[in-house]
Amino acid sequence: MPRLGDWGTVTDFSWLWILLGVLVVAGATTALVVPRRRGRGATTLDAPPPAAAPAPADDAPTDVDVAPVGQDAAVAPPLEVPEPAAGRLVRLRDRLARSGSPLGARLLSVLSRDTLTEDDWDEIEETLLLADLGTGPAEELLEALRTRVRVLGVREPAAVRELLREELLRVVDPTLDRSLALDRPVVDGVTKPAVMMVVGVNGTGKTTTVGKLARVLVAEHRSVVLGAADTFRAAAADQLETWGSRVGVPTVRSAKDGADPAAVAFDAVRRGVTDDVDVVLVDTAGRLQNKAGLMDELGKITRVVTREAPLGEVLLVLDATTGQNGMQQAKVFGEVAGVTGIVLTKLDGTAKGGIVVAVQRRLGVPVKLVGLGEGPDDLAPFVPEQFVDGILG
C-alpha cells in the first residue's frame, strides 16, 4: 500500500486543496438553496410552470361576452312572442265604447224616449246613414226597429238595448263563415301549404296587415312563409321582411325592384312546399290605375301560384275610415280578384262602424279580420257579438 509520501510533497498536493475548496463551496450553496426552495412563495428554476387557470363554467359570471368560435360576436335579439288572437276583440269593444259611437249611444237615447215621433225616426235614420251603414241596410234596420217598438211598446233602457242589439246583430249577420281557409290541401298525395293572397290599394295598411296576420298565425303555432310580391313599391319588401324577422318567419323577395310579382309569388309558394310550412301569405301591389291592368296582374299571380298549390283565400284590405268612398275600390277588387274575405283596418279610429255591414252587403263576403290600432298585435278575428256590444257601449 503506498504511503502518503509516495504522492509527493505538500506542495505537490495543490490539486487536492483545489478539490476540497470546490466541495466546501458546493456545500455552502446547497445550504442556501434548500431553505429558499422550502420558503413560502419561493420559485426555483427547476420548479414546474404555474398551471393554467381553469375555464369558467357555463353559468359562471363573466365581464366579457365571448362569441362562439366561427360566429359573429353580435347576438340576434330574441324572437317576439305574439299575443294570442283569442280575446283581442275585447279591446275593440272598449275603444268603440269610448269613441262615442253614434250607432250606439244616440240610438239608445232616441229609442228610450217616452213617445217616438216621425222626427225621432228621421233622427234614427240619419244616425244610421252617418254611421256608414249604407242606404239599404239603414232602411232595413229602421223598419225592423219601428215594427218591434210599435208591437212591443218597449221603453225601458234595458229592453231597448236588448232589442237594438238583436237587430244590429241581425244586419251584421253572425251566420256568415268568418274562419280563414287554413286547412292544407292534398294534391297528388302531397300535402301543400294553405295559400293566402292579400290585395288592396296602397294606403290601406295592406303590407302591415300581412305582417300582423303572420303574427296571428304564429300565435296559433302555425309555420308561415311570406311572399313580397309588391315589387313596385321599394319599401314594401323591406317592411314585410322586418315584420317576419321579428317572429322568425322567412320572407321570399326579389333581388331588384320592379320584378315580376307572379314570379315572386310562385317562389314563395314553392318555398312553402319545400319547407313543408302551414301557410304562405302573399302580399301584392296596391296599384289601382285601371281595372284591366289590375285584372291582368292579379290574374297572372293566381294562375302561376296555382301551378304549385291551390289558392285558398283572397283577403281584401280596406280602410274603415274611408267609409262609402272605399266601396268602389272594394267593388273593383271583388270583381277581379275573387275576394273571399275582408280585413277592415283602422276600425278603432272611426265612431261609425256601419261600414262592416255596408261592405259585406256590397261584396257578399264576410269581414274576417279587423284592425284595432297601431300595435303589432292589434289585428283580431271579427266576432259579430263582441263588435255589436262595443258599438252599444
Rank of each mutant, 00 (worst) to 15 (best):
V201M: 14
L182T: 07
R233D: 05
G205M: 03
G200T: 15
A235S: 14
V198M: 12
L240V: 05
T208Q: 04
A229L: 13
T231W: 00
D173F: 06
G200L: 05
V171P: 05
R215C: 03
D177P: 07
V210W: 04
V187M: 00
A181L: 11
E241M: 09
P193G: 01
D230T: 07
K206P: 15
R215S: 07
R184Q: 10
N202F: 08
D183S: 12
V190E: 11
D183Q: 13
R233Q: 02
S223D: 10
T175V: 13
P174M: 08
Q239C: 03
A237Q: 10
V195T: 00
K192E: 10
E220N: 15
V216N: 15
L180M: 13
T207D: 01
T191P: 11
L180S: 05
D173I: 09
D177R: 11
M196F: 15
V187E: 04
V198E: 02
E241V: 15
V224A: 06
V216Y: 15
D238M: 10
A235P: 09
T207P: 00
R184Y: 03
F232H: 10
M196H: 14
M197Y: 11
A194D: 01
A219P: 13
T204R: 10
V224N: 04
V195F: 07
A229M: 10
G205K: 04
K206T: 13
G227W: 09
T209F: 02
D188N: 11
V172T: 10
